[in-house]
Each structure stands twice: as structure tokens, then as C-alpha cells.
Design a protein around this nucleic acid. Structure first.
Lengths: 231, 231
DNA sequence: TGCTCGAGTGTGGTCAGACCACACTGCGGC
DNA sequence: GCCGCAGTGTGGTCTGACCACACTCGAGCA
């Protein structure tokens, strides 16, 4: 304790804004007072307010738009942002954990989501993603629909935190995944795509028939194989 | 795509610093050039450099110390910071997910950690935390050693990402946990503490005897009961 | 009357320069 | 040889200014 030598000004501003949120003075979707007003009201300079707002922006709490009128200003976001993915990507860059950690965690989340899925889960989003993969795809399209397919499955578990974590893990790996796919030459691409699609279909079929254990196992093998590149 | 109307100056600074990290120009533990030098080198103003450094500070990438000499300046951190907990706490404040989500996810992580623990896992940290709980405790002490106990178990899984997630989830709930414990009156406190301790002992005993399934089940019941307050 | 265009205005985005608080460095005097 | 204090470079903060932008609204025109 007593580990706080000083309270930095911008932290005080963040606390003030957090307090506004907790008391309901502002709510998601609302516009914050302007930077100049905030600075004046809190008795600090505008640069300090801006430092606070920048951090809140990176954390996915607010977004700023300039100009004048109802669309301009700094707003409390209603939807999660890629902030978590940004953070995880940073940690990854700093080598605070490695690819195997990320994949293990991803597999854990997906297994759990499949096994705890409610009986009446709506699989239509997964089915749609599956159908979109039936025709030849570019690498970008495959990444997009592969993400949609797996995310749709995890979303069925109705745990928003877990779904958000899953999305962020995948987001943090996105660039590395793209690099990995780019290394597959044109000849091998079609067979690669077909195999991915076939595995997706098997996972979906297992889910659709209610065989969760099998779906979980198939999913684990699928993810582990393609991400760790051990065909 | 093309969703980037403009590149903000501070984002460019962040990219420059990230680039320095990727090329090895600076490494964890190193000192960054001073704010004035960075501003000069990148052709931007010092406030913009500061906005970038503030966000990196919140993300747990750097830390600043003032003064003069080898200990002063802005450093790349070598250890993870509570950044993830801060972020999750924010998301929680914004009600982007709820307590049940957090607990479910925590239980998932702990179950997984227990079931995938290597056979030769070192349980001494958990044993130590357990022994520290044998004597009457304050609420703060109980929270501290309870965290140590569970964290020690998750750390055994040797997945740094999962361990970090677990720690952050727990960190994001810390204040709410404290509020919850504060509502237990002095008379009920001792029996509460004893029950928590007994359950910890049972979990440890199951782990120590190699009965992971039982340990996982006990752990799940333990966490769910105390956090959802359904005795 | 209705439309267009331009000045006005308030927002975030950026800059320059200054001063403070701090902690080390090193010189000077004792 | 030791102590103390001025010097110096760091982050921390403030002030005031200007720019870019997007809307608002009224003047002027058709």
C-alpha cells in the first residue's frame, strides 16, 4: 500500500469520467462535455483532459469526432471496441506469452463454449458462414468467414465476456494468420481451402446432431492443426 | 476497409515505438529516448508524444519516472501490468458484460487449468497460501490469500496467457469482492472464513492426491457459491 | 417562395514555449 | 576525505494560440 507517490492529473480526470458513468450522469451513447468544458470544470488544463481521453479512447470507452453539431464531440461507446485485441497484440509483441499459449487458450474457450451451449442454440449464423465458404475464396475471404464460423459457435454460449475474449484473441492473431496464409502457394491453396471447409462441415454436422463431445474434439483438432501448422 | 479517415499523430508515434520494439532497437527493460528527443526525431510536438506514451502506459507497455540519472525516464516494462484488469473493469462498468459472465469465465479457466495441469506440477505456492489462511484473518488478508491460492493453481497450467487472464478477471472484480465481504457482519465472519478455508483444503487434498476431476468440481462449487452468494 | 452559398461557430487536433518538481551529478569548500 | 549545494536533464503541467472540420443559419439570389 501507499504505493502511489502521486496521483497523476490525467488519472484524476479518468476517475471523474468513470464517476460520471457510475452515477449515470452520462451513459453509453451520450456525448461528453467538450474538452474545454471538462478542463474548466475539473480545474485542469486541456492537455491533461486530452491525455485522459486518449487513454479512454484506446481502452474502447470513448470515441471522438470533430466538427460541429450533434455528431461532433466525444462520445461514450455502446459497443466493445478492439481494445482488448490491441492490448493482447501488444503483450504478444512484448513476448509476454507465445503462440502456443494463445492457441491453447482459444481451444479452451471454444471447447467450453461448445460443451456449455444451450440445447436450443441458434446455429444459423454458423450455417451461413459455412455456406459462404462453399465457393472459391481469396485468403482474406477465408479468414473472414472462418472467423465468422468459429465466432458464431462461441457466441452461442451466451457469455459475452467469453465471446469478447475469443474475438480479441483471434484479432490479436490476425496479422500473423494472414502472413501464414500468404505463405501457401497458389497450387496448394485450393486443397487447403477444401480441407478447412470439410472440417468446418464436420464440426457443424456434429453440433447439429447434438453430439457436442465430438464437435468439441473436432474443433480442437481443427484449430490446433491449422494454427500450429502441423498438418 | 478504408475506414481510417485520418491517421492521428499519436497513433503514428505509437507505431514508431512499436516498430522500435519489433526491430529490437529497444527491448523490455530499456529506456526510451526522452519525450523531447522523441518529439524532435519524429517531427511532432511533445504533447503528441505524451498522448502516445500515456496510452502505452495504460496498456502496460511503458512506465515513466521523473528525475535525472539512470533511473529516470520512460522505460519499456518487462512484466505484465494490471492493464488487462483495468480494461475489464471498464467494460464491466459500462455493463458490456455482467457478474455471471465473469464468474463463468473464471470457473472455466480454473477448471481447465486443473484438468490440464502437468503431473509434476509444483503445488507448494498453493500450500503456502493455504497455511497462511489457518489463522484468523482480516477481510483484506483473506482476499489476498484466497487470490494467491487460486492463482497458484492456475499458474500450474504453465500457460502465461491463461494465468494473466485469470489474474485480470480477479483484479477486475476486486473492489466488488471487497464490498461483498464488507457486508458480512463480525459474528458471521469467523464461520465464513472457516468454511472458505475448509473448501480450500478439500480442493488442495484432491489435487495432491491426483484426483483432478474432483478438484475441478470442488473448485467450481466453491467459486460459484461464494461469488454468486448462494450458500 | 425556395434554393444556394458563404460567413459564423464550436468541436477536436496540433503546436510552441514556458515553468515546476524531482532526482541525480559533480564540483567546491570545509 | 566528507558534506552540501548549484547544475542539469528528466517527466509533469499549464497557457494560449492556430488549424481542420462540419454543422448552422441567414443573406442574397433566382
Amino acid at each position: 500500500m501507499t504505493a502511489d507517490p502521486v496521483m497523476r492529473t490525467y488519472e484524476g480526470v479518468i476517475d471523474s469520467i468513470r464517476h460520471m458513468l457510475l452515477t449515470g450522469e452520462v451513459s453509453p451513447g451520450d456525448r461528453l462535455p467538450s474538452e474545454r468544458e471538462l478542463a474548466d470544470a475539473l480545474g485542469v488544463s486541456r492537455p491533461m483532459v486530452r491525455e485522459a481521453l486518449r487513454t479512454l479512447e484506446v481502452l474502447g470507452v470513448v470515441a471522438a469526432r470533430r466538427g460541429q453539431g450533434p455528431a461532433a464531440g466525444t462520445f461514450i461507446l455502446t459497443e466493445p471496441s478492439p481494445a482488448l485485441a490491441t492490448l493482447l497484440d501488444m503483450e504478444f509483441t512484448l513476448e509476454r506469452f507465445d503462440l502456443a499459449d494463445v492457441i491453447d487458450t482459444r481451444v479452451m474457450l471454444e471447447r467450453w463454449a461448445i460443451l456449455s451451449m444451450p440445447a436450443d442454440a441458434d446455429l444459423s449464423a454458423a450455417a451461413h458462414a459455412l455456406s459462404m465458404m462453399s465457393e472459391p475464396l481469396t485468403r482474406e475471404e477465408l479468414m473472414e468467414w472462418d472467423l465468422s464460423f468459429h465466432q458464431a459457435i462461441v457466441d452461442c454460449a451466451t457469455n459475452r465476456l467469453a465471446a469478447h475474449l475469443y474475438r480479441s484473441l483471434r484479432g490479436a492473431m490476425h496479422q500473423r494468420l494472414a502472413d501464414s496464409l500468404a505463405s501457401i502457394d497458389a497450387e496448394a491453396w485450393e486443397s487447403f481451402w477444401r480441407r478447412v471447409m470439410r472440417e468446418h462441415r464436420m464440426i457443424y454436422a456434429a453440433l447439429d446432431s447434438g453430439d457436442r463431445e465430438r464437435a468439441a474434439d473436432l474443433s480442437e483438432k481443427h484449430v490446433t492443426r491449422h494454427y500450429l501448422r502441423r498438418p
